[in-house]
Amino acid sequence: MNKIETLCLLCSQPLQSAISWKILLTKQFQPTICDRCSARFEHSPTATALYQYNDAMKDYLHQYKFLQDVALAKVFRQELHARFKLEKAAIIPIPMHPLKQRERTFSHMEELLKAANIPFIQLLEKTTTATQSSKNREQRIQAASLFRLMAKAHVEHKEYLLFDDIKTTGTTLRHATEVLLNAGAKNVKIFTLING
């Protein structure tokens, strides 16, 4: 996962390989996509997400999650690193059900953080293998909690930050927040890669 990319991860065009002083001094990471692909993503105006959902993001998620292209975890590492490097709250990526994770072969949320070199912890586990998108709105809102505390998890009276890929109805994040608050968390913030 640490190799230097010479081709754009999204369109395979050669990347300008010149390592400028500017990159060395101001940036942590080598770019992994070309300027043209990069320009297709739309930044989010909100403080709780990095990007807006658009065609480029749809293609990205398809390739990353459905086609299982783990390499794409690196695409947003610079932006994620910048957002999280000064974060004081403990970061918790939304977990996948173990069966689901075996099937996908990786946890897409954890891989994003790993690629951005951001430390994280895990206190939660998923209770169901059903996906949110396979339910209708009503089912999603009424469902029993999607998460529970991991055995031996210790929730402290402090601030936590939940990290998910996309916020649609907010059910996933609401359930996870409740579990943490009930277990004694002082405060739970949320942040998503994409604004739904």
Binding site: V70, R104, T105, F106
Partner: peptide
């Protein structure tokens, strides 16, 4: 080599390598 990626695989519990070149026909790892 540029078109291979190595990662910690949750399925085989090992360092797994997959081919990005023919990825859109279903991932070969």
């Amino acid at each position: 080599l540029q078109l291979f990626t190595t990662f910690a695989c949750s399925k085989c519990q090992q360092q797994c390598i997959y081919c990005r070149h023919c990825l859109n026909m279903g991932r070969v790892s």
